[in-house]
Design a protein around this nucleic acid. Structure first.
Lengths: 354, 354
DNA sequence: TACAATCATGAAAGCGCTTTCATAAAAACA
DNA sequence: TGTTTTTATGAAAGCGCTTTCATGATTGTA
């Protein structure tokens, strides 16, 4: 064990300033007016002793932890950087600390985050079982979901993006502008809701254009570079015929492109490839990736904003759908450049069931 | 404020199990043997009441928070994803929670992280003033630095990578294999130590080959795509003559390439461009980026490992230098593929002054 | 000048745990 | 069977704060 000098406590400060601990607490929190002179004395004492209130004691005495928790399945893929950035910034703005837990090893008995150490929780898709979610809902513990609708139609706020619409825009473009008919769709990880909605967008776009849905064109890309690579290689080996790939997300698009190249296919000449998310690198791929821009960072910020409302006892939006926009670049077969946004949508569409 | 049913406390459990709270605490922590039958009763009560100990109370009563803090300047750039992943995983393995704070707004009076709410701290370069660091050192609070040597030669453990060597390998390659003589170096952000060491590697490599150092070839890239883009554009406008660019890091390399392309230069034909870090996308750029692989995720893991030793009262390595390796791809002018590691180094070089 | 109203401050009661110390019950020994 | 050792458990004292309640000092009003 470490032996270090005991840090000063509030009573040391009180002694030094010749006041009671109650008064120190008051100048610390500004809860009750304190005479200017005494306040000055107290502040001097705090500085002199280099006093920092112990977090645990405050939390225990008061009611709030001033901390929000973030539950993630894992930190990987280019997707998480902007999301984390947005959440961190949002937490900072709202005056909360951020406790992060990635639940790679899901041990239900050891609950790392919850009402005992946070004031509220941000839960990313796939990181938790519905039962725990239901429990929190029951005890009215503030929770906001990211990219995941609540189970059993519990009334838990959700922030997500226009996945279906985005995917449909992409597929429409592929069909209408480039005359593609056999478009592969690479699913995301099991249970990942973004993937489900993107699949729906895909199917709807096909239906509109009277293209028959073909099961053999659907496979798993895992929203992951490596997995997509392997999957596309297999499809190629199996002689499946296709003229375009909607990779599920940008990471998977990268893997798909790699596999296609390795097999000698030209992109977009032989096969068009499109992604989803518009990660920062999408534009630097060659050919530059046609994709859908998801306002990932803004999702994070907005999620914290909604959570803050919940934590203040206010109502939060049941559903916040962030707008996505088509980003046409080269990998679909278009000539370089230009960003086309979707004119049918508003900046933020809330409380509307998809 | 939110009104929710009060969560069960240890005394509710005690009542339910017909034991004292001391006994409940004992089965909770396994500190003292408890009779099997009673233990079973207690566990049943815990389950029935859905009891989770309140973190704040444990911390206040015991001495440890079971939390480590991470101090970052900001979460941006492709660099942070693997680093965070490594740190999160390391913390998880060591049984600690992770509290993240990015100090974009540096308010010295409000100390978000410290001895009052964590057992130890990971501090990334550029995120803190030396004074605070010195204070922690004085009170023997466990701190490990990432990519930054301690000020005033305080004895604080450091984890970083072989920056100088990596940069030198890169420049040597450019000179020896590709005959480059006028190599631009793009510095990182002010005060970023990685940048300082890379600059030294750059200069040493020049010296070895008797190439005179030219001030006009040094400029700021900020380890940032956009900043590098602007800088290179300016150098081009100013008519500065160069045949290669060492961009400081991979993000900056991307910006540099973009600026060069826009000016009609061919890469690597007219100008070779190399980066540093080997972020996941480096290989997918075109031309594929020649760079130095930094084991970023492993740095994060190792940092937590060292911090854990400190927190357990053990000694930690004063300096852990993680090995870097040259990754030759196309942007330097080489033909595709092949990874050349540096045979002069061991897996991990520790406690050796650079 | 007398009394009420206002204000600044202190005393003390928790918040929910861990841990020490004491004690009753059980086991071991003679 | 009586005495000592061991084991399981409870009572109670904090840990360092916030907050309520009471009180003495100050100001205002007539």
């Amino acid at each position: 064990m470490i032996r270090r000098k005991k840090p000063p406590t509030i009573s040391h400060v009180a002694q030094q300033a010749k006041v009671s601990i109650a008064t120190v607490s008051r100048v610390l929190n500004g809860t009750t007016p304190v005479d200017d002179k005494t306040a000055k004395r107290v502040r001097a004492a705090i500085n002199k002793l280099n006093f920092v209130p112990r977090h645990a004691a405050r939390v225990l005495a008061g009611k709030r932890t001033h901390t929000i928790g973030l539950l993630l399945p894992e930190i990987s893929g280019a997707f998480f950087q902007p999301m984390l950035k947005g959440i961190e910034a949002g937490a900072h703005d709202a005056g909360y600390d951020l406790l992060i837990h990635s639940t790679q090893i899901h041990d239900p008995s050891h609950r790392p985050l919850g009402e005992h150490n946070t004031d509220g929780l941000l839960v990313f898709t796939n990181s938790l079982d519905d039962q725990e979610l239901a429990r929190w809902h029951r005890i009215k513990f503030p929770v906001v979901l990211l990219h995941q609708t609540p189970p059993d139609s519990l009334n838990i706020p959700v922030i997500t993006i226009e996945n279906k619409n985005g995917a449909a825009m992409l597929i429409n473009h592929l069909i209408e502008i480039h005359g593609k008919r056999r478009i592969v769709f690479l699913r995301g990880p099991e249970g990942h809701e973004d993937s489900v909605w993107r699949a729906r967008g895909y199917r709807e776009a096909l239906e509109i254009h009277k293209i028959k849905f073909d099961h053999s064109l659907i496979a798993s890309g895992g929203f992951d570079d490596e997995e997509a690579f392997i999957t596309i290689q297999q499809m190629l080996t199996n002689g499946i015929d296709f003229d375009a790939v909607f990779a599920g997300d940008d990471d998977a698009a990268i893997g798909a492109i790699r596999a296609l190249r390795m097999a000698g296919r030209v992109i977009p000449g032989d096969v068009a490839v499109v992604g989803f998310d518009d990660i920062p690198f999408a534009r630097y791929l060659s050919p530059a990736l046609t994709t859908v821009r998801a306002p990932i960072e803004e999702v994070g910020r907005e999620a914290v904003r909604q959570l803050a409302r919940l934590m203040n006892g206010e109502q939060a939006e049941a559903l916040t759908l962030m707008r996505t926009e088509l980003v046409i670049r080269e990998s679909c077969g278009c000539a370089p450049a230009s960003t086309i946004s979707n004119p049918l949508q508003d900046e933020l569409i809330s409380s509307t069931r998809r």
